[in-house]
Design a protein around this nucleic acid. Sequence first.
DNA 1: GTGGTCTAGACCACT
DNA 2: GTGGTCTAGACCACC
Lengths: 122, 122, 122, 122
Amino acid sequence: MAWDLDSDRPIYSQIVDIVQMQIISGTYAPGEKLPSVRLLAAEASVNPNTMQKALSELEKSGLIITKRTSGRFVTEEHEMIGQARKKLAANEVTTFFEKMEKLGFEKENILALIQDILREEQ
Amino acid sequence: MAWDLDSDRPIYSQIVDIVQMQIISGTYAPGEKLPSVRLLAAEASVNPNTMQKALSELEKSGLIITKRTSGRFVTEEHEMIGQARKKLAANEVTTFFEKMEKLGFEKENILALIQDILREEQ
Amino acid sequence: MAWDLDSDRPIYSQIVDIVQMQIISGTYAPGEKLPSVRLLAAEASVNPNTMQKALSELEKSGLIITKRTSGRFVTEEHEMIGQARKKLAANEVTTFFEKMEKLGFEKENILALIQDILREEQ
Amino acid sequence: MAWDLDSDRPIYSQIVDIVQMQIISGTYAPGEKLPSVRLLAAEASVNPNTMQKALSELEKSGLIITKRTSGRFVTEEHEMIGQARKKLAANEVTTFFEKMEKLGFEKENILALIQDILREEQ
DNA sequence: GTGGTCTAGACCACT
DNA sequence: GTGGTCTAGACCACC
């Protein structure tokens, strides 16, 4: 597993993004038990406290459920995962549009442009 | 001028991107003379050789014309600038689609999604 | 190896020509590993940076492939080498014709002249 | 007049080539009087002795005739000029073939190649 | 003053 | 060990 952490952003925040992505993409399925904090921390070469903080964030957002005695599990509510996915997607779309507008493209034209490019790729 | 260089990527490459963006966005107009290598290097707090390497790249790509004794100028061929703009846009579109596909969206659905989001923003 | 560099033209440019010639003539075979930058630089009594600049040019032109940690290799695409050979040949032919025209020969007569001379040489 | 002398070869020898070329190409017509040694030397930014030596060479080869009291003249024998022209042309042809053979072209193929290139140029 | 080239020497990432 | 990047400082040609 490539964790690829850099020192630009807080480590815990980068971990949140990675694990969130793994949940959304199904690497960790709904209801699946996550590895222990210690194991994950070791994998990522990170202090367990840091990993703990990251997982707490994910619990706040509802993607992870902690069962005191048995560990952490991915939520079984597909709805939660779907929401997270939509939120990330919305972020991607808006930052994408910001970049395109810096390049001087009007919102109205971007859709047309995308269709052009997709057509060329085929 | 905020050059905002980090150590993740080669500095000269970041400079290429920044100056390219300035040309495309019109900060430097077609035909306009660029500041001298030494001045730009001082501005960016970078060695003149590094700045030179960046500008040489831009010359190879056709965005900049060097006149030996009088300085460097933005090309007057709007065509070249338009091409660079299109190339950047195409990159943005493809990386955007890659990210969205990681999030589990099919190409066909992305267009629909964008339209939804744009409608909500209004 | 005689590098025979003079100060009329940029050294790196002369090196480009020499190595290019070695590749075309087969001194370095397709797929063969080139000596390291530092070694070549020492051979040519040149700064490693200068040699690097020359080899980078050759990489841009496609004759050389760089594998980051293991070295530089002559391309295995005979097509690329053939193209370079053709380009050099075309240059020779055109400069030859320019000289001959300065001497007052018409294009149509040059072919005939060449045939005469070749016949005499036999 | 661009004399373009470099320090690779003896200056007088370079001057011989240049003046010879001017005679062959008709810049100096058969029978025409050449400027004085002093004037030519000044033009070429060269010591008059050097110019003198160059012109003596040309006299030996028969291209120039010295008339003691009135100056130097281009020969009126078109034959002489024609021979010089042929000799230069022959040199060009042979050095051209040497270069092409270094590039791996057989004599037999060069003619065909030239015809190809000339056809493309049209 | 401009850009272009070159050297010397350093540090980095990768394997 | 490999190539890649960067800095510092020098000299050149051109105008």
